[in-house]
Structures are given as C-alpha cells and as structure tokens.
Design a binder for these strands. Sequence first.
RNA 1: GCCCGGAUGGCGGAAUGGUAGACGCGGGGGCCUCAAAAGCCUCUGCCCUUCGGGGCAUGCGGGUUCGAGUCCCGCUCCGGGCACCA
Length: 827
Amino acid sequence: MARAYDVQAIERKWQERWAQQGTYQLDPDDPRPPWYVLCMYPYPSGPAHQGHVRNYTFGDLLVRYRTMQGYGVLSPFGFDSFGLPAENAAIKTGEHPRSFTDARIAELKASVLALGAVYDWRREIRSHDPRYMRWNQLIFLRFLEHGLAYRASAPVNWCPGCQTVLANEQVLADGTCERSGDLVVQRDLEQWFFRITAYADELLAELDHLEWPERVKTMQRNWIGRSEGAEIDLPVVGAADGAALRVFTTRPDTAFGMTFAVVAPEHPLLDRLTQPAQRAAVEEIRALAQRSSQLERTAAGDPASLEKRGAPTGSSVLNPFTGQPIPVYVADYVLMGYGTGAIMAVPAEDERDWAFAQAHGLPVVRTTKPPEGFEGGAWTGDGPKINSGFLDGLDVAAAKARAIEWLEAEGKGRRVVHYRLRDWLVSRQRYWGCPIPVVHCPTDGIVGVPEDQLPVLAPDDVEFRPTGESPLARHAGFRHTTCPRCGGPAERETDTMDTFVDSSWYFLRFCDPWAEDRPFDPALAARYMPVDNYIGGIEHAILHLLYARFFTKALVDVGLAPGVPREPFARLFTQGMIRMDGTKMSKSKGNLVAPQKYFETVGADALRLFHLFVGPPTDDVDWTEQTDEVIEHGCGGFLERVWRLCVEPEVASWREGDPEEHDRELLRGAHRLVAKVTEDIERWSFNTAVAACMQFSNDCARYLRTAPGGPHRATLDETLDRLLLVLAPMTPHVAAEAWERRHGPGADIHRMPWPSADPELVRQDTVTLVVQVNGKLRDRLAVPADADEDQVVALALGSPKVLAALDGQQPKRIVARPPRLVNLVVG
RNA sequence: GCCCGGAUGGCGGAAUGGUAGACGCGGGGGCCUCAAAAGCCUCUGCCCUUCGGGGCAUGCGGGUUCGAGUCCCGCUCCGGGCACCA
C-alpha cells in the first residue's frame, strides 16, 4: 500500500526522541502533582503478544494524557523474571535460566519500545536482579522477626508434574495444577508460610473503599470467606479425662437438632474415638481420603457415594443443649483444613448432613419450622424455632444470638469467626527463584542470614535435572554453611520463594528504585502511593492482588513503610482477554498473532488505535479474519486521512478575512470533540473517543471540499491542532510528526497542555426537536436551543406531518420536554 | 447448585427513560485508470411502496410509563467466578 507518510521512519524517530529527551522520566523532586500509572509487570516470555499490547496501549494513553494535563506521571516498567518456564527450559536445553531470561526480557522490551509506550526506564526492575532480591530477602527476615513468616509441617498440595508444592490458589477447582494440569496430591512437608490470615478482616473490610470492579471485589470476598458462628465443645461419652470434640457451626440455633457428629479423616481425635470393632472401616475412609485428589474429595456427593465415604467410629459425644448422646462418624466431606475439622450434623437444616443421614439411616429432628407445603429435605431458610427448648419461637437470627449467649454463659462454647483464607505457602523447591535467607543450625535452630550478608544468591554451577529435587538441595557448596550465630556447621535453606512474593511489593520499589540502604524510601513511596491506575488482566483478581494488598499492610506494620497508604491500588482496571476461535490467545495454544508484523507494516499507532477502537476496554476481543482489515483500512486508513488533512491538505484556494458561520460551526465541532474525548477518557470509553475523532475528521474533510470560497485558514488551523492534540495520547507518533510539520522543528505536541473546550462554543444554538404522536416519531424540526414549552408545542402543532398523523383528533395530553421532544397523546 | 456479567444489522460495536443502529469493517453503485490496486464520492437493519411515505424491529413472555434497548417480574441461551468451607 502506498502510504501518505513513512510509518516506520517516524515511529523510530519519535521513539528515539522520547528516550533521548527523557520526556517521561520523573525525578524525585519534580514539582508537578504526582500521578502513578502502572501496568502489571509481565513475566518475560519473549516478544510482546496482543494482550501486552492492549495493556500497554491503555496505560500509555493515560500516561500521556495525564502528562498533558500537568501531572508528574510515574510510569515505570519491570519484569517478573523469576519463574518456572526458565527453569524448565534449563532442564530441556541446559541453558542457564539467567541467560534464558535475559534474552526473553530483551525481546519483550524491544517490542514494548516498538509500541511507542513510554516509561521511566531508569526505574526498571527485574525480580532476579540481586539488587532487588536483597530487599526481597530483607523483607522476609522482617516478616520472620514479626511472626508473619513461619515454618510449619502441613499437608501440602504437591504437583507431580511441576515436582513442587503449590499454594492453594494455584490448585484449580477440579484439583489440577493451574500450570501443568496434573492432578495435585496431598503430602506432609515442612514449609514456609506468610501469615496473611492475620490480615483477613482488614483485607475484607477495606475492599468496600476501593474503586475496583465489583466482580473482583466479590471474588476476593469469596476467597477470604469470612463466616461467623460458634465453636461448641461436645464432651466425649466415657472419656475419663473430660475430653471434648470441638465443632464449628454457623448455625448454633440448630444445635437441638444435631443427631450425630462428623470428624474429618485427618482429625487428631479420630484414633481415640475409633472403637476396635470399627477400626477397619475407619482406616478405609482414612486411606481413601489420603489418596483422593481434591477433585474426588470435593465432587458433589450423591447419597450413595457418601455412604461409601463415611463410617461410624463407635464413640458418642453429648449434645450440650439436650444432654443426649449422639454417635460420631468419620467422613471425608468434612475437611480438616476448615473450622475445627469436626462438625455437629443437623440433617434437618443442612443439605450435606441430610444426604449423609439418608445414606446412613440417621434420625432427623427439625428445629426450624419450614414454610407451609415444603416437601424437600433440609430446610435452610428462616422460620420459627421448634423442638429447641429455650429457643422455641425465636427466628433464626435471634436464636443464633441466644444460643451463643447460652454457650458462653455455660462455658460450653463461644462466638467465633472463621475464614476460608489460609496462610500463604511461600516456599518452592525450585532453583529459579529468590532464596529464602535462613540457615538451619543444629543448636540455634532457624537463624536468619545477617542483613549485611544479603542477598543470598544461588550458585550458577548447578545441574538441572527433571527429578524434581531442587538443584539447590543437591549443591553441597551452597547447602553446607556455618551458623551466623554460633559459628558451627549448619545447613542453608534450599527452598526459594513463590514468585508472587516478588510481585507483591515491586510497585513500592518503583517509587525509589535507587535506594541502597533499604527497600525504598517511605517518604517517596508515600508520595506516589497508592497507584492511581493499576491495569492488568482479570486472571490476577485473587492471587496477585490479594498478596500485594497483604504485603503493603505488612510492610507498614513491620516498620519498612511508615506513612505509606495501607491499600496499594486505588483504582484497578481489568482489561478483556484476546480470544481466537473462542479460546484465549496464548503461546501454549499456538494461536498468537504477533504484534511485530503490524509494527513492520501499518505501524504501532494503527495497532494501538485498533485496540482502543475495537470495543469497551473491559470486553474480550475476538481476533477474526476481519481484524486485519480493521487494523489496516479502518485504523491505518484513518491515520493517513488525518495526515493528509493536517500536513498536506489539497486546497485550491484559502479564504482570508473574518470567519463565517460555517467556519464557526467547524470550530464549534472541534471544541465539542475536545469535550467528548476528555469525558470519554475519564470514563474509560476509549472506543467512543476514537469514533468521535473519526467522525470529526470526516467533518473536517467535508469542510475542506465544500466550504464556499475555500476553507478559512485560521479556523482550519485551530481546528486541526485540536484534533491532533486529542489524538496525541492515542496515536503518539503520527500526532507528534504531524504537529512538528505544522509548527516547525522543535515543536513537541507531547509537551503541549491538554486542550480545554470553551463551554460557549460547545453549546448548540439549534437543536433537533423530535415530535411524536402516541410515542411514535412523526417529524423532526430544527428549533432554537432555548425554545420554551409553548414554542415547541406551537411548532409541533404546525407541522404538516404531525397534523396528518393526528388525522383531525385533538391531543388529550401533550408531553413537552423542550427543546428536544414533544409527544402528542391522542385517543 | 449458588453468585455475578451479557444477548442490538452480515460483523465489532453506539445510544443521561426521549430520533435505535454513532463510528468502523464488510457489501452494492459511481469517479479516477488502458486496466487493476490505492484513493475519493455515495448507498447499505428487515418488509411493503403509487417513491410522498408506511409497517416491523434491540434473545423470549409479561408489566410500569405519555414514551422502554435502557426500569420491574418470569424465562431461554451464552460467558465468567465459586462450589461438601459446616
């Protein structure tokens, strides 16, 4: 295609100029009001894909827009450069993860630069950089000192494919690994945890104040899973030591209806409760639970399978409310990891208990009166209490409160809040991650590596083998060390940290990446934080965003971030995915359409414009056969028309002198465009902003062709300048070049202030009056914008079309909304 | 099963309860050209039309309203999240 201008040359020119002039660098002493725009830093997997392009196009638009508005915009970029793919590549090819990763970073960075997105590259962070790792490790030690990091033996999710432990968050609902897809199994191992549960309440409560998509907030609320209820101690019948089974329930009001109790197969009291005659059956359930995957264990159970999955222990406990003994069962529908790992079963008011009771022939006692005509099993709704002694007649809420009061007064239970959220398992048995900076000493136990010895770096001379054992654990030189406290022989921790640790505070380091004596200067972090616009994919709705929120709070609390806001991201924007043939476009699916080919043909501006124009930014994008056409003709063609209009318009003769009415109308259009684009950017409606620009450039082209006596030069100049200014954040290269051609060498559109719209000019003098008869459109009339009710009604009744529609009938009612609408209601 | 979204021309999508389909892609016709590409102009929801216009249209069925794509109730389908969490 013959192009109006040399796309590649001007894109290269301006990219070099932005880099060389440091236009988007922000110094710590910058006097402008700060604004922090951040795209989630990427895992460097090679050249950018369309998802990156979409993300950085939105981010870059905001960076340039806020800059033009006079903000000192903090726009940093970095790489989440630890992670499994590099290590897996090492196992396959022998290439060291560092050189592999650095090569991928170079590729990704090149395509980000080619997109024309601007960053303060002096602030670049790579999480595998020892200068970053050092502070990662220091934070770990501070967490350790403050009891926020701890080591515990726990049944953990072990992925046989990745040969490592996974966090709960990395196990999908069907029990498979989110990365490899293998079935995850349970193993008991010593692991490191972060005590995120200590922040459960705050993490939940502060969601209410964040300008985040409701969807994401709901997902986090569900994930935290707060539930209020009671713990009740059920004394074991015949226990000489007064042992009791502690259960958790959210329905203490139903306690009179408990007809049995159930413990999880892993429950510590199970051995004691199991009578000799039941031993074999209990062991079977226990073995079943152990070898079951999450999938089998949590699959919706029909009564038949529940029968197989539970067995009586032969022991009984006392219901403290009735004083009656009830049998204790073991069943794998009760999970050790939630509540107390034991429940009181009320089949009349709980679906699962109902199913289990049906399968095992256990009695049912209703304690809530179901509505008339209810014929189902468990009734979980509200109703008056029955069969419940002192609770009878109360509704559910009142009975809950009364039951808890009674339990606390009697010393038989207490009000308690439980969370679904678990502590964050951070240790990974892998090489390509940040080493956990502790030493295991036979005499001193766990000892943190002294801060002046950080960072602890993994040795390069390791062997990458697909055995699953960490290369660090096999490396004698790394592993054997001396205890920093007693000087005796000791072993280094060989686990590394979850890469989500790296991404939990990088946005704080961006505020002060030069700090050499601490992770960052709290005063600078307080200046820029919270991030004003955080932009990324919905896939991080739970994991990354929850961890980062936890970290920010914890960093304040351990003294590393005094004065820094406790919530890191004020406004979150989650962009849609790029899909192809109904599935997510991704490297693993092999359906990537690399941005590179567009850079080499239509250019970055056209591709950016496409991503802005294709639809609302939150929506998924379907990449179809039509897409190339839209990018090339729709977007690329538009930019060429803008170029011709602004740089080399074909004008037979210019008209001088005072502007006439049609000239003023063009100028009014330019002011309306500015108002519209400003408003649309503020509400993240980029697609309509682009549409407005297209429409207006069509108006300008028509004016150029049709203005009587030729276009009025001064008017057209002012008009086109405004068009270019609003395009500058969207298509920065062509806007910059066209601007320079119009205003001479050295003129830089990106240093211009964002234009304002004159309200006088935005206002319309004449508007279209719509006349309806019985709600149906019958005529359109041009009326003055300040026409009042009498005027519009008179005009409406004077319209021949309206009179024809009325067909002689008198309007029974006239609804007038001057100046835009009149509705005449007849018969 | 529960909780969120969504459904508008051939396609992507516009539309504070007040002109449905902005803008763009695709398609038709025309200009330019020896011809084509590119570019430019123009038409383009469906049906009827005596070419003036008329009727029908925003997944389906009801309702509120002078007026509903928009609000309410009940469905269908699609997408996403959660799912023995006691």
